[in-house]
Structure formats: structure tokens, C-alpha cells
Simulated assay, not measured.
Amino acid sequence: MRTLDHGRTALVLIDLMDRIVDLPVEPRPGRAVLEASLALATDFRAVGAPVVAVRVERPGVEVQPPGSDLVASVAEIADEVVVKRSIGGFHGTDLDDLLRERGVDTLVLTGIATNLGVESTARSAVDLGYSVVFVEDAMAALTAQEHRAPVELSFPRLGEVTALADLVWGPAN
């Protein structure tokens, strides 16, 4: 069980955009990642903890590809939306400022792709001093191997890997 402090924890949803969620990803379909992420977002909102959605736009491209917006249900539940133009959610964005303004020191990460957007965001988060919790069953990558490698090798060194069912909220401060 991983106990979360709702006053200091934010959920960060990585690249839950229609065109990415609909890719053939593993070890679970993108729609399963979306459903798990939305369930977690609902729990965060219920206790007043922030939900931040991060989406990517290609730099220098005037018209983004179809499906580049967040999935509508993600856009609706997010307190903040951050647009990135690189792999990770921190570089060149105001993500760190948004989190610090809210007193956040712990991030719970979900999204697609495990080995790209999620891992890059996590590495920057750790460099910036955040604690990181990875919800393994709310992530996927283009192949099962690309998902497993960071989950088994990198993530345990960067933070804590857990399952959605093992997250619980601590008492209110």
C-alpha cells in the first residue's frame, strides 16, 4: 500500500490524447490506460488533490495531426493542462511552477508511453526534487518490452512502482 497526502500530491497524466490512446500499445490497450487514469483522477478530485494533464504538440508545426487534443474526458477532469514540445513534461513548460504553487512534492504518474513521456517526465521530476509514484497498470508503451524495461529497471531507482488498487489516501491534515 502506498499512502498519499492529498495536500502535497498531484496526479500527472501523460499524453492521453486520442491519437496516442488509440495506438496499438502493450501490455494493455490505450483505452484501459485511459480508464485507469480517469478512475485515479476521479479519486484525486474527490479529495481536492490536483490533476494535471500533459499533452504534446510538435514544435514548428502550425496544424497538429488529427487527434492531438486530449481525450475529452481527460480535458474535463484536469485542473491544469500543460502543453509540451519535447518528450518530457517539464522542459520548456510551466509544469514545475504549477506544482510548486500548489505545494506539491509528490507526483503520481500515468500515461502513454511508459518509456518515453512518462519516463522522461519522471527523470526531470526527480532532478527537481519531487518524489514519484508510478502506477504500472495505468501505463503502456508500443511494445510490452518497452513498457517492462523502465518499470522493472529504471522506475524502482527513481521512485515507487505500484498498482492503482494499492494507492490509498492518508488522513487529512
Rank of each mutant, 00 (worst) to 15 (best):
60 G>E: 15
60 G>Q: 15
60 G>I: 13
61 V>L: 15
62 E>K: 14
62 E>Y: 08
62 E>R: 15
63 V>E: 15
63 V>K: 14
63 V>W: 11
64 Q>N: 12
64 Q>V: 09
66 P>F: 10
66 P>I: 13
66 P>S: 12
67 G>C: 12
67 G>Y: 11
67 G>N: 14
68 S>Y: 11
68 S>Q: 08
69 D>T: 12
69 D>G: 15
70 L>D: 02
70 L>G: 03
70 L>C: 06
71 V>P: 00
71 V>E: 04
71 V>L: 00
72 A>K: 13
73 S>C: 09
74 V>T: 04
75 A>H: 05
75 A>D: 07
75 A>N: 01
77 I>Q: 06
77 I>F: 03
77 I>N: 00
77 I>H: 04
77 I>Y: 00
78 A>Q: 05
79 D>S: 09
80 E>K: 09
81 V>Y: 02
81 V>L: 07
81 V>R: 02
81 V>Q: 08
82 V>Y: 03
82 V>S: 01
83 V>C: 07
83 V>G: 03
85 R>C: 02
85 R>K: 12
86 S>K: 14
86 S>D: 10
87 I>M: 07
87 I>N: 04
87 I>D: 03
88 G>Q: 02
89 G>P: 02
90 F>V: 06
91 H>L: 13
92 G>N: 08
93 T>K: 08
94 D>N: 10
95 L>Y: 04
95 L>T: 00
95 L>M: 07
96 D>F: 09
96 D>K: 11
97 D>R: 15
98 L>N: 05
98 L>F: 06
99 L>D: 04
99 L>C: 10
99 L>S: 04
99 L>N: 01
99 L>R: 03
102 R>G: 00
103 G>M: 10
103 G>H: 11
103 G>E: 08
103 G>Y: 08
103 G>T: 08
103 G>W: 11
103 G>P: 08
104 V>N: 05
104 V>R: 01
104 V>I: 15
104 V>Y: 03
104 V>C: 08
105 D>K: 05
105 D>P: 00
106 T>S: 11
108 V>A: 09
108 V>Y: 06
108 V>N: 05
108 V>T: 12
109 L>G: 02
109 L>R: 01
111 G>N: 05
111 G>C: 00
